[in-house]
């Protein structure tokens, strides 16, 4: 907006450094100025494109194996993205072929696992490609001393959260964590979510899961997300449950506590 522009600027533009939210956009009359309106349209177009990007499971598996993980490739019962978007029931269960492959693996194991990790595309393969690997690394570092028996990492295409329950149950895992791409936002096409269930089995409800959302560079850090998850897992093992009864009470001085007090100029 130049001096000659009929759009009106807001005198609090410097607050933009405090938040990724679209504040101090100015106004044309009382409406959005043209530049802000077009910025929004571009972001929406990028998010729409992120929804339809396919997950490159081969590349991800190669990276995981290079880090010493074993992998299992699985596919949900939703054959393609179009079906996935309209049929969440299909995204919540494995295809017959994948269920069989998982069953074969489980039968070869004499005992179950403590922890199964599922990585699924969800609504943003971009989030998985960017964040799943580094986050998984932090998690495995932090649980090293727990001595838990880990299942092979399951990579699932066209997967939804509840599919983790079927995978965990088939693997006879005591706990399952699903890492999956969240709905792309305008400012965050690459946000990763973590969903944790103790004693996974088909038919578990959302109330029996714990969620840690918004893992990305501008959001929740890998370290903090891993810290909260590991705290939840240890508590879950102690109390033998997960979900709303298991509150997230991890000691996290930076979220939000001190920041809420120290940085809040409205209360200075």
């Amino acid at each position: 907006m130049s001096d000659r522009s009929p759009a009106i600027e807001n005198p609090w533009q410097h607050l933009r450094q405090l938040t990724p939210a679209r504040i101090a956009l100015g106004r044309a009359g009382t409406s959005l100025p043209t530049a802000a309106q077009l910025d929004f349209q571009l972001a929406h177009a990028q998010a729409r494109d992120a929804v339809h990007l396919a997950l490159d499971t081969d590349a991800l598996a190669a990276q995981l194996e290079a880090q010493g993980h074993r992998c299992l490739h699985l596919h949900s019962a939703a054959p393609d993205r179009h079906t996935y978007l309209q049929r969440p029931d299909l995204g919540r269960r494995l295809s017959d072929e994948s269920a069989e492959r998982l069953g074969d693996h489980a039968r070869q194991q004499q005992m179950g696992y403590d922890l199964a990790i599922v990585i699924a595309d969800g609504l943003s393969a971009l989030a998985v490609q960017r964040h799943a690997l580094p986050l998984l690394q932090r998690i495995t570092e932090q649980i090293e001393k727990d001595g838990w028996r880990l299942a092979p990492v399951c990579l699932v295409e066209q997967g939804r959260v509840a599919l983790g329950d079927e995978v965990g149950e088939a693997l006879r895992a005591r706990m399952v964590v699903v890492l999956l791409g969240e709905r792309p936002g305008l400012s965050s096409p690459d946000s990763l979510g973590l969903y944790f269930t103790y004693a996974p089995k088909r038919g578990r409800t959302d109330a029996e899961r714990n969620c840690i959302s918004n893992v990305r560079l501008e959001g929740l850090s890998y370290n903090l997300a891993a810290h909260r998850l590991v705290h939840l897992m240890r508590e879950a093992c102690r109390r033998q449950l997960s979900g709303v009864s298991l509150k997230d009470e991890a000691d996290m001085p930076s979220l939000p506590g001190d920041a809420a007090k120290a940085g809040n100029f409205l209360l200075g």
Binding site: N10, W12, L15, R16, L18, T19, P20, A21, I23, A24, S188, N214, E218, G219, L220, L255, P256, A259, A260, K261, A262, G263, N264, F265, L266, L267
Partner: peptide, 21 residues
């Protein structure tokens, strides 16, 4: 609705002020 990805106090305050104004 002054939401912030990490509940940062200053970030929330910035959106509150923007909304009030």
């Amino acid at each position: 609705q002054p939401n912030h990805p990490t509940d940062d106090g200053a970030g929330i305050a910035a959106s509150i002020l923007d909304g009030l104004l």
